[in-house]
Design a protein around this nucleic acid. Structure first.
Length: 502
RNA sequence: GAGAAUGUAGCUCAGCUGGUAGAGCAGCGGCCUUUUAAGCCGUUGGUCGCGGGUUCGAUUCCCGCCAUUCUCACCA
């Protein structure tokens, strides 16, 4: 410590020393808890009986609770505090004649933010709050930083910790101080749990594929590049799992899924973080209609498990997730929105439509597929509010999707939309190796025209396809976006514990 | 990438038309053995994002930079 410490920090370090001088070890090894805050509260409530002489508790056994001091009210010879653990908060009451003079002096050296264990019987105070009366308490970790204090009365918050930058950068403080934030991440964990259970029941195998890849593929995006020193070559952080999961289908696993991070070297905004979590799954002997059924059932299941209903509220609007969801065709929707037969237009005409929609696609730089996609994004997507599917996309957009069985210009692909935003993507997977090679070659042409997101030719993947892949349905779901819906969060940063910051 | 807004104490914020800063909470000291936004009395704490400029004098006006937030664009 060469620098002078800030006053508030200095005071805490002084207290730390004083505690040590009093023989208190501020960082002991463990603490035996008997109850969480929540368990102590409910057990006490359940033990209360109303009889002669008013309400009586039959809970006489002392409890041990532990957590962080979040509020502290010290009086001359007694003190109240609120202790917070992962289940919630419980009040504790420390009084001089119960703990003794020495211990009370020690208690006075404690601060908001310190972690303590408290042992004693539970009772109700005059004001009615269920409280642990401390026979003993133990410092479990001294906190050396002041905590942003959030006080609350009648649901109104005071001195909230609201600075978004500070909350994201110091998520640990955010979590300590803002209980709603913790809830979001608990819900997120429940969602992935439900997904795994659901997919397990559907006989999907949970697998892991490489994040460090010698060649990236499976999506249209720019990658992050890194370098392996010993191999002396560049590696890429995956932008998708697709090509590896398909190799597993070829290998003979009939149904596989992976929930993992993808990385895309692109812009960030409220729906994009450079690293994000995707669920990808592949099912042999199925086509994209299988995935449509799967998605609506899975999403409905999540809603039911979380809320007991398939109606959810997102950003003030209600959505009914009950399956089945309406299915719209890509070009039907475009025609509806523009009142024109977009499909029979040439590239220049589509570009004109884009300009009308306020878009400026770079002429010649992007192919027909991208033009259509941009136009769709501008004129159709915002209106796709309720849960629905858009299906049968133009071939140019989807180099890994199988051609449509009854319309050669299209592929069997769908995207799922909710609240005007895409959250999943699926197709009947292309398993004709010769067609796949041709598609990669088309991508190569786009790439040489300057489309950095066009996909690379993966020779080994083509070899795998040549070995033979059964007809297969594939699906990707953005777990972050899904979580946004179910936690009613407006920004992806609010569903990622440590979002990317500049 | 563009636009708008913001950056003052640990947290949340005031600071009008320029005179080197305030509040509440937290902290510190005192009183207080059922408080709960505890209370009462006292009190500490700030290179006012950074760098220039104008001015006798800048937190305040001007320019630049940095960062953040929001919106738009980009992004399957």
């Amino acid at each position: 410590m060469t620098e002078e410490l800030h006053e508030l920090l200095r005071i805490r370090r002084d207290k730390l020393q004083q505690l040590r001088d009093l023989g208190v070890e501020p960082y002991p090894y463990s603490y035996k808890r008997t109850h969480t805050a929540e368990a102590a509260l409910t057990q006490f409530t359940n033990s209360e009986t109303t009889g002669e002489g008013g309400t009586v508790s039959s809970m006489t056994e002392p409890v041990s609770v532990a957590g962080r001091i979040m509020a502290l009210r010290v009086m001359g010879k007694a003190a109240f505090a609120h202790v917070q653990d992962s289940s919630g908060r419980i009040q504790i009451y420390v009084k001089l004649d119960a703990v003794g003079e020495q211990n009370f002096a020690i208690f006075k050296l404690l601060d908001i933010g310190d972690i303590i264990g408290v042992n004693g019987p539970v009772f109700r105070t005059h004001t009615g709050e269920i409280t642990v009366r401390a026979d003993r308490f133990e410092l479990l970790a001294k906190s050396l930083h002041p905590l942003p204090i959030v006080k609350e009365k009648d649901g109104q918050q005071f001195d909230a910790f609201t600075d978004k930058e500070a909350r994201y950068r110091q998520r640990y403080l955010d979590l300590v101080v803002n209980p709603q934030v913790k809830k979001v991440f608990e819900t997120r964990a429940k969602i992935t749990q439900i997904v795994r259970t659901f997919l397990g029941e559907w006989n999907f195998l949970d697998v892991e594929t490489p994040i460090l890849q010698p060649l990236y593929g499976g999506a249209a995006a720019e990658p992050f590049v890194t370098h392996h020193n010993v191999l002396e070559r560049d590696l890429y952080l995956r932008i998708a799992d697709e090509l590896y999961l398909k190799r597993l289908i070829i290998g003979g696993f009939d149904r596989v899924y992976e929930i993992g991070k993808d990385f895309r070297n692109e812009g960030m905004d409220r729906t994009h973080n450079p690293e994000f979590t995707q669920l990808e799954l592949y099912a042999a002997y199925e086509d994209y209609t299988f995935c449509m059924e799967l998605v609506e059932k899975l999403v409905g299941k999540i809603a039911e498990t979380l809320f007991g209903t398939t109606n959810i509220t997102y950003e003030g609007k209600e959505y009914d997730l009950t399956p089945p969801w309406p299915r719209y065709r890509f070009f039907d929707k475009l025609q509806e929105a523009t009142s024109k037969d977009v499909r029979s237009m040439n590239d220049a005409e589509i570009e004109t439509e884009c300009h009308k929609a306020g878009l400026n696609p770079e002429a010649g730089k992007v192919g027909r597929g991208k033009l259509l996609d941009k136009l769709f994004g501008a004129v159709v997507e915002p209106h796709l509010t309720g849960p629905c599917y858009v299906m049968d996309y133009p071939k140019e957009l989807s180099p890994l999707a199988k051609g449509h069985r009854s319309d050669s210009g299209l592929v069997e692909r769908f995207e799922g939309f909710l609240a005007g935003r895409e959250f999943c993507n699926s197709f009947s997977e292309l398993n004709d190796p010769i067609d796949q090679r041709a598609r990669f070659e088309d991508q190569g042409k786009l790439r040489s025209q300057g489309d950095l997101e066009a996909q690379l030719l993966d020779e080994d993947f083509l070899t795998a396809l040549e070995i033979g892949m059964p007809p297969t349905a594939g699906l990707g779901i953005g777990i972050d976006r899904l979580t946004m819906y179910f936690t009613d969060q407006h920004s992806i940063r609010d569903v990622i514990l440590f979002p990317q910051m500049r």
